[in-house]
Every structure is written in structure tokens, then in C-alpha cells.
Write a protein that binds this DNA or RNA. Structure first.
Length: 571
RNA sequence: CGGGGCGUGGCGCAGCUUGGUAGCGCGUCUGGUUUGGGACCAGAAAGUCGCAGGUUCGAAUCCUGUCGCCCCGACCA
């Protein structure tokens, strides 16, 4: 491709709408342009990167036994009513109506379609397992689209669905996908981690996320340096303390006057009670029932853990009026002592003694409270968010925390959709059984952004070779000098003949402009043809990710480039 | 949806407080001189000041409404 003909409008200045580096660089380097919030056009360079990512994904899906198909983006309301999600999915689903006023969704995901499809045409265990996937645009009317490609309302996703005869089969499919995903991110040379995740409302008991590590990541990952435990915050377990308190140290509970003091911080400042010696009490409404949760003053409640524990459909913080009605005090003076509600205590309370908490009477607190004596919880379980420094639940060494971008997520669905849509088969014994499903997603467009987020410097993008839009850019220092253009064109043609993807920057620009653009768009290998080296019949070869320039005799350029590319493909 | 900010040539911004006929840098086009890390000179094109009302002799500027965009919170690939 000749740069003079390539559509890549680069920007010298950072568009004001872009906050994070991948968004800024993709915009500046002429990869993407915004159409409306969360909706982007992919320009030619981006399209090439996407195609490379897609092809890697496709190859690994096929290798794992997947079969590619393509399902509709427009999905009829009736299908979503069968699964119950037409009413449940909420505002995140784009809905539209045809001329007969029939409802449709722009597909946010494809469980309904694929399950109906498989239901209609698969009847026998002989046809299973089945792994079907597609790579296609997805539509989700996100509350807040953000960070360019990171969280779009229209985005490209690979989604694969597995159908098995039993849970052992699902385990096999799941493992295949797990290792296929590792192969995919390995091949793209991305620095990532596989992390245990919560499978959430979807059900199923196992779920993993694939996180590309980057500071701008929205998800916090806790991982262990000593073993391979890694989990996202929602999922990360907190280890039970091994030294419970001893009853002999318990002091007598006393009520103290704390006028106007409502927050944990108030008690720290005014009463000198450290956060770690306080217990906070949160009131939740779980499917209409008000319950209390107690945890150490400086900890965050993990609502997902609570929700999973209670098996509640709906969980939200209780409003102050109904709390006052039940407890006789407002927020800020709540405590577990004497409370006539179910109390769920965080595990950590087992090693807290003589702590302080609200007295369920405005302007009063208790001190020297002890669990077991002064109140008895319904259950003592892990309910808080894990933090850096917590003990690894597997090997007990200290956990580290890091930010990651979720680029892949796999989970076991079980029979949620096959039950709802009636997707069953006849097994070898002639019995009708529900198919056991799994689903496996990769955010293709998000992966492109994540790759930039992880591979850039002050001058621009540094594409990993396996997903670079072009491998090589050739820059004749002065396009008007015929001998330079001739030498550059000769190499250009030689490389192209070998299937190497190359840009010839034939523009009549000053060298500096061409160098800047080449760096900005992140082409991994740059070949400069200038008067100095040309005299010696040499070309200058520079890797985007290294500082040094290598002088290579003209007849060795092809081999040198081939060697760099093949090394870069495996790194 | 709650909170904060912003809409002025393609991009980045100034002008708004104190109404008076729209300006700067970059980019673009033409000509010339240049040519190893975003050149220089000369000339040119390009703006319904987001939109709709209102106040006023007069509105980018003041008022009201509305739309859009960005950032912070609960979701997710």
C-alpha cells in the first residue's frame, strides 16, 4: 500500500473527548472515528487489525472444534419472551418495532437465537457435543459508554455456545475454550491473566475472565505471587482468620454517649476509636425482607457475595425510614446488639473482640461488644471485598492487586436456556434430556483497544506483530530523489512478493513528518532509505519497540525482515 | 439515572464576566524556497458560534427550553 493513497487521517493534537491512551491514539492515528456515543467507524488500518484478531480467534475456535455460523442481529420479541428476558433485560437492550408494530431487539447476545436454532434441528445425543460461534456486532445500550472502544454500545464480539449431553461434557467443552482463549491471547502477545469470576445471575458454578493487564483497566484483579490463584474483586475469597478471639479477654459491654456522631470517621476523630475496632451495620432489603450485615469498620461489603448467600433476586440497601421503624434508630447509630432481624456477619468478625458499634438508639454507641455473647448472627460468612495484602485463600501468602481490562469471559450456563427454550435431545437410553450449555465471549474491538493500552509510548502505538495492520513501513527520506524512491520501491515490491504487508511512504513530505506518522500508527518495522546508507547500498531497519537502527545490505533486507517477523509472531 | 463539565471553520482553543458586524495555532488549497524527527515565505478557501424560543435598536455573549458530547458512581465483552 502506498501511503499517498492510504486513508489514515492522523491528528497532531489529542481530541478533547479522549481520556485514556488507547482512545487518544486510535483517534490520532486515524484508526477510528466516532459516529455517536459508544458507536465508532473503523477506518482501514483498524479494520486490518480487527481482521487479524478475528482470524486468530477463528483459527483457535476452529481448532477447538468450533464451527462458525452467523445469526441475525435483529431478533424477534417472542423469542426473548420465551426466555423471560424481554422484560428482565431492561434498558440495556435496544428495541425497535416494525411496520406492524412487532417488537424486536438488536442482539445484545445470542443465547435465545442459538438455543432455538439448536432445539429445532438437534434431537439426538449423536449430534452432540456442538460448539457454534460467530463474530459479529453486538448492541447494548450501556448506561454510560466510555473510553472509546473499551465500552461501546455497538461492539464486535466473538460468541461461542456449547451444547453437551451432560455436565462431564460441559467440563470438556469448557476446558477446550479455556485453553483456546489462552492460545488466542498468547498468540497476540498480550500480557494477560486468567481470573476466577462470579457467574452471577446466569447460574452455573464456574466462570473465568481473561484480563489484559493495564492501569486503565476497570476491573480489579487480586492475585497471588506464590501460587496461581487469581480472581476479580467480586469473586476473590477472603480467608477465614485462624485465630479466633478468646473469651477470657472479653470486657464488659458499655453504652457510650456519642452525640451527633454518625460515621465511622466521626468515631475515629472524636472518640479515638480506630476503624479496625469498629463494626458497621448495613441494612439490606432482600426480596422484601430486611436483613442486617455487619463487617469491620474499614471494609467494603461485597454485594455479590451477599446476594449469592441469600439467593435473593432483588437486593438493595434499605431506606432510612424502614430502618428506623425496625431498629428505632437511623443510619449512623445501628448495631447488631438487640436487633430483631437476621444478622449476617463477615468472617473477619471472628477475630475481632471488644469492638464498638451503634446502639440502635440515636446518639449512642456500644463499646466492648463481642459476637456470640452480645448478639448471635444467623451466619458468619465471607461478605467483604478482598483487598491487597489479604491472605491467599489457596496458599496463605499475601495477595497483590492489579488493574485489568476484561477481554474474554467464559461461563457454564447449565440448563437455564435449554430448559426455557425446550432444547432437549434423546439420549442413548431413549430418555429426553435438556442440553447442557456453556457460553464464551471475546470482545474483539475491545481487545484492539486493550492491545494499544498495553503497547504504546510517547510517540504512539506499538502494535504486536501478530495483529499489526502492516508489518513494515518503508520511508524514503526524500521522495523527490529518484535513487531513493527507486531503492524503496524495489524493496517494497520484493517484500510484497513474499506476502509481507508493507506500506511505502511515497508522500512528498519532510522526513520528520513521515517518521512521526510511522511511529504514531505503530507499524512494527521501519525501513529508512536515505542518502547516507544508500551510498553504501544499505537500508536502515528499525524496530518500533527498540531504540537501535540496524544497517542492512540491500540484498539482505528481505531475510532480515522475515526473521524479525517470524520472531515477533512467536514471542 | 444522580453529580460535575463542555458545545465557536477538519483538530486544539480564545472571545462570553462588562451585548456592537468572529479571532489565534495546527491542518487544508495555490505558488515559491526547502528536505534525516511534525520546515519557511507569500497568498487563499473554510464558521447558521449545537438547536429553538425570548429580552434588546443590536445576542457567540443575557434569560428559558431543548439536543448532543465528555468525566465521576451502580453494569459488562
Amino acid at each position: 500500500m502506498k501511503a499517498s493513497q492510504l486513508f489514515y487521517p492522523t491528528l497532531r493534537e489529542v481530541p478533547s473527548e479522549a481520556e485514556i491512551v488507547s482512545h487518544q491514539l486510535l483517534l490520532r492515528a486515524g484508526f477510528i472515528r466516532k459516529t455517536t456515543a459508544g458507536v465508532y467507524s473503523y477506518l482501514p488500518l483498524a479494520k486490518r487489525v480487527l481482521r487479524k484478531i478475528e482470524n486468530i480467534v477463528r483459527e483457535e475456535m476452529d481448532r477447538a472444534g468450533g464451527q462458525e455460523l452467523m445469526m441475525p442481529i435483529i431478533q424477534p420479541q417472542e423469542l426473548w419472551e420465551i426466555s423471560g428476558r424481554w422484560s428482565v433485560y431492561g434498558d440495556e437492550m435496544f428495541r425497535l418495532y416494525d411496520r406492524h408494530n412487532r417488537g424486536f431487539a438488536l442482539g445484545p447476545t445470542h443465547e435465545e437465537i442459538i438455543t432455538a436454532l439448536v432445539d429445532a434441528d438437534v434431537q439426538s445425543y449423536r449430534d452432540l457435543p456442538l460448539l457454534l460461534y460467530q463474530i459479529q456486532n453486538k448492541y447494548r445500550d450501556e448506561i454510560r459508554p466510555r473510553f472509546g472502544l473499551m465500552r461501546g454500545r455497538e461492539f464486535i464480539m466473538k460468541d461461542l455456545y456449547s451444547f453437551d449431553v451432560d455436565y462431564e461434557g460441559l467440563d470438556v467443552s469448557y476446558k477446550k475454550m479455556h485453553s483456546a482463549y489462552q492460545a488466542i491471547y498468547d498468540r497476540m502477545n498480550l500480557n494477560y491473566r486468567v481470573v476466577e469470576a462470579d457467574s452471577g445471575a446466569i447460574g452455573g458454578n464456574e466462570s473465568h475472565e481473561f484480563m489484559v493487564l493495564a492501569d486503565s483497566g476497570e476491573c480489579t484483579v487480586l492475585y497471588c505471587k506464590s501460587c496461581d490463584y487469581a480472581a476479580n474483586v467480586e469473586k476473590a475469597q477472603c480467608k477465614a482468620p485462624d485465630e479466633p478471639t478468646s473469651v477470657s479477654d472479653w470486657r464488659e459491654m458499655e453504652k457510650i454517649s456519642t452525640p451527633g456522631l454518625r460515621t465511622i470517621q466521626d468515631l475515629v476523630t472524636n472518640m479515638g476509636i480506630p476503624e479496625q475496632e469498629q463494626v458497621k451495620t448495613l441494612m439490606y432489603s432482600a426480596d422484601e425482607e430486611i436483613i442486617a450485615v455487619v463487617l469491620r469498620g474499614d471494609r467494603e461489603l461485597n454485594e455479590i457475595k451477599l446476594k449469592n448467600l441469600l439467593g435473593a433476586e432483588q437486593l438493595f440497601m434499605a431506606d432510612e425510614a424502614s430502618v428506623r421503624e425496625r431498629c428505632g434508630a437511623g443510619f449512623g447509630s445501628l448495631g447488631p446488639v438487640g436487633l430483631k432481624l437476621k444478622i449476617y456477619a463477615d468472617l473477619e468478625l471472628t477475630r475481632m473482640q471488644n469492638f464498638s458499634c451503634g446502639a440502635n438508639e440515636d446518639n449512642f454507641h456500644f463499646r466492648n461488644v463481642n459476637m456470640g455473647r452480645d448478639f448471635v448472627p444467623e451466619a458468619v460468612v465471607d461478605l467483604r471485598n478482598a483487598v491487597e495484602g489479604d491472605l491467599c485463600p489457596v496458599c496463605s501468602s499475601s495477595l497483590q492487586s492489579i488493574c485489568g481490562i476484561e477481554v474474554g469471559h467464559i461461563f457454564k450456563l447449565g440448563t437455564k436456556y435449554s430448559d426455557a427454550m425446550g432444547a432437549s435431545f434423546i439420549n442413548a437410553n431413549g430418555e429426553e434430556k435438556a442440553m447442557i450449555m456453556g457460553c464464551y465471549g471475546i470482545g474483539v474491538s475491545r481487545t484492539m483497544a486493550a492491545a494499544v493500552e498495553q503497547n504504546n509510548d510517547a510517540n504512539g502505538i506499538i502494535w504486536p506483530i501478530p495483529i499489526a495492520p502492516y508489518h513494515v513501513i518503508i520511508i524514503p527520506v526524500n521522495a523527490k530523489k529518484e535513487e531513493q524512491m527507486q531503492a524503496a520501491t524495489a524493496i517494497y515490491e520484493e517484500l510484497m512478493a513474499e506476502g509481507i504487508e508493507v506500506i511505502l511512504d511515497d508522500r512528498d513530505e519532510r522526513a520528520g513528518v513521515k517518521f512521526k506518522d510511522a511511529d504514531l500508527i505503530g507499524i512494527p518495522i521501519k525501513i529508512t532509505i536515505g542518502p547516507k546508507s544508500l551510498q553504501e547500498n544499505q537500508a536502515e531497519v528499525k524496530k518500533r519497540w527498540e531504540g537501535d537502527t540496524e544497517l542492512v545490505p540491500m540484498d539482505q533486507v528481505l531475510n532480515t525482515i522475515k526473521a524479525i517477523i517470524s520472531a515477533g509472531m512467536k514471542k
